[in-house]
């Protein structure tokens, strides 16, 4: 049943966002801390449980794959509802701060991911 997959996905999201809110409250910040990330991990863990009691049929899986494939169209809709005017017309301070933050972050990616690859090679050597 396709709806089983959709229901599992919904359960993961509600659980994750709730946990993220709790985590935020524990840390004393008025924000959700990693709710979506927690939900993703939960979905991965649940879908990797390969025992007989909990097994998704391929129809159930297609309920999840549908939403996974809807991701890009949803992102297009998300782009279409951004406050682009505010971003463009907010003055130089905001533009420069945004541009520099992106440039510096991009520049650091290769450094840090190389770090992860090196570490990974070390593990093989050991």
């Amino acid at each position: 049943m396709i709806v089983y997959g959709v229901a599992l996905l919904s359960f993961c999201m509600l659980f994750g966002v709730y946990a993220g809110n709790l985590l935020g409250e524990l840390l004393g910040v008025s924000a959700n801390v990693g709710g979506v990330g927690i939900a993703m991990l939960l979905l991965i863990v649940l879908s990797n449980l390969s025992n007989k009691k909990f097994h998704l049929s391929s129809a159930s899986e297609s309920g999840i794959y549908f939403w996974s494939a809807m991701y890009i169209p949803i992102v297009v809709a998300m782009a279409a509802k951004q406050n682009v005017i505010a971003a463009v017309s907010s003055g130089w301070l905001a533009v420069i701060a945004g541009v520099l933050a992106v440039a510096v972050s991009f520049a650091v990616i290769p450094l840090i991911s190389r770090f992860s690859v090196d570490h990974h090679i070390d593990q093989y050597v050991e």
Binding site: L9, I64, K81
Partner: peptide, 26 residues
């Protein structure tokens, strides 16, 4: 468009992409 591109469906679809992600890579 606000509903389709809102955070609820966006997060729902993002979580769905995790299905089939490689656990060892993570």
């Amino acid at each position: 468009v606000a509903l389709l591109g809102g955070s609820m469906l966006r997060d729902f679809a993002i979580i769905a992409t995790a299905f089939g992600a490689d656990m060892t890579a993570i």
